[in-house]
């Protein structure tokens, strides 16, 4: 009797498994999306001195460097990309109160100051090139301690994506 009962239980279990398996065999159709790659762009720039690297001589209090052209080119890509340009100099802490570095779109002094990012609402597109006029000056009241000291240790150009 026990053997029969065990057999019946196994039989029911097998039937349930078979039933569950067959329930999965419903119709199904699968389709791949369009074979189109979607790529992201890039915001990359190069910067150069088109007239040669500047050879700024020693700055005396109350004087400025010769104007220099700094060319910035976007080498990235982006269908809707808009970017702004900025330029800044690395100035030692001791000299910061007395040294001024500035960049303009157009002529130095009379063009549009670039500051840390211009224009505020981006207008440069991917692949566009912009020339900046840069100049550094030493305040008339600069202390004697800055004599012979490095005043500018590098210039950094920044491109920033604009969202408005």
């Amino acid at each position: 009797m026990r053997t029969m009962r065990t057999g019946a239980v196994i039989g029911v279990a097998l039937a349930l498994v078979a039933g569950a398996t067959s329930a999965q065999a419903l119709w199904s159709a699968t389709l791949a999306g369009p074979a189109v790659p979607v790529r992201s762009g890039d915001l990359a720039i190069t910067a150069s001195w088109p007239n040669g690297a500047p050879t700024w001589g020693p700055l005396l209090p109350g004087t400025a460097t010769a104007d220099q052209i700094l060319r910035v080119s976007s080498t990235g890509a982006g269908t809707t990309l808009r970017w702004a340009v900025g330029a800044a100099a690395t100035i030692p802490a001791a000299a910061q109160p007395h040294v001024t570095f500035a960049a303009w779109i157009g002529a130095c002094g009379t063009g549009t100051p670039v500051g840390q990012g211009w224009p505020a609402a981006g207008s440069f597109t991917a692949g566009q090139t912009v020339d900046l006029c840069v100049r550094a000056s030493l305040a008339a009241g600069a202390p004697q301690t800055l004599s012979g000291a490095p005043l500018i240790q590098g210039v950094t150009v920044t491109a920033t994506q604009r969202s408005s």
């Binding site: 999306g33 369009p34 790659p37 979607v38 790529r39 992201s40 890039d42």
Partner: peptide
């Protein structure tokens, strides 16, 4: 940057 999204991997 420069990432490719493969839409053919959509199912």
């Amino acid at each position: 940057v420069n990432t490719t999204l493969d839409l053919s991997a959509l199912d």
